[in-house]
Design a protein around this nucleic acid. Structure first.
Length: 204
DNA sequence: GCGACAG
DNA sequence: ATCTTGTCGC
């Protein structure tokens, strides 16, 4: 019992062994009313692309702030399922815990896939914050209703910060550290950046 | 009533 | 998310 509890605490802090990570992103095509989801597999901590997969689905569910999961989770999970190797961690494009009901896209995808996940959003959904420092690596807490729901992270100087939050099976501090460790001079961490490129190119 | 609002 | 020209900066 004691061992089991300890194991849960450790796993909730940070995945014990990360060998591969995956980036998930989707793009919607209003003309065809369909969305393309991309999953890229990268080695860790090198972040070298090893595999990629694409999934396509017609989407009828509209975009409603707070309900993004119902629109994007299906394609992302479909793309993820196509990867031949199972990643140890997911970088999901969107909020995780930093959500009105504390359960954004990264939470849904991570839980349903049974894989630790980090929410990496390019803009804010909820919460207030003070602008983080100008240097890369600077961060400040994101508060919503007296609670820290995420972190606003400057991944690159001269660009807008990213909104990092817990998705599944990982602590916020670890999530922020992993996001910064996955950056290679660009605003977006490699997993997210490569998944974005792939889903964008596949839409054509 | 008004403004905010991941992708 | 998408549409869309030029433009500022490294």
């Amino acid at each position: 019992m004691q061992e089991r509890l300890r194991a849960r605490v450790v796993r909730a802090g940070r995945p014990e062994r990360i060998l591969r990570v995956a980036g998930l992103d989707a793009h919607y095509d209003p003309k065809l009313r369909r969305s393309v989801g991309a999953a890229v597999l990268l080695s860790w901590p090198e972040c070298v692309l090893e595999e990629s997969a694409l999934a396509c689905r017609s989407t009828d569910f509209p975009y409603v702030p707070g309900l993004l999961s119902f629109r994007e989770a299906p394609v992302l999970l479909a793309a993820l399922a196509l990867l031949r190797t199972r990643p140890d961690l997911l970088f999901v494009d969107g909020q995780g815990y930093a959500h009105p009901r504390r359960f954004g896209l990264a939470c849904h995808v991570g839980l349903l896939a049974g894989i630790p996940a980090i929410g990496v959003a390019k803009s804010r959904l909820v919460g207030e914050f003070r602008e983080p420092g100008a240097a890369a690596g600077a961060q400040s807490p994101l508060y919503d209703r007296e609670e820290v729901v995420g972190a606003v992270v400057r991944t690159r100087a001269g660009t807008r910060p990213l909104f990092v939050s817990v998705g599944h099976g990982i602590a916020l501090e670890a999530a922020v550290a992993l996001v910064l460790a996955a950056c290679r001079g660009y605003r977006l961490p490699e997993p997210t950046r490569l998944a974005d490129h792939l889903s964008r190119a596949a839409r054509r």
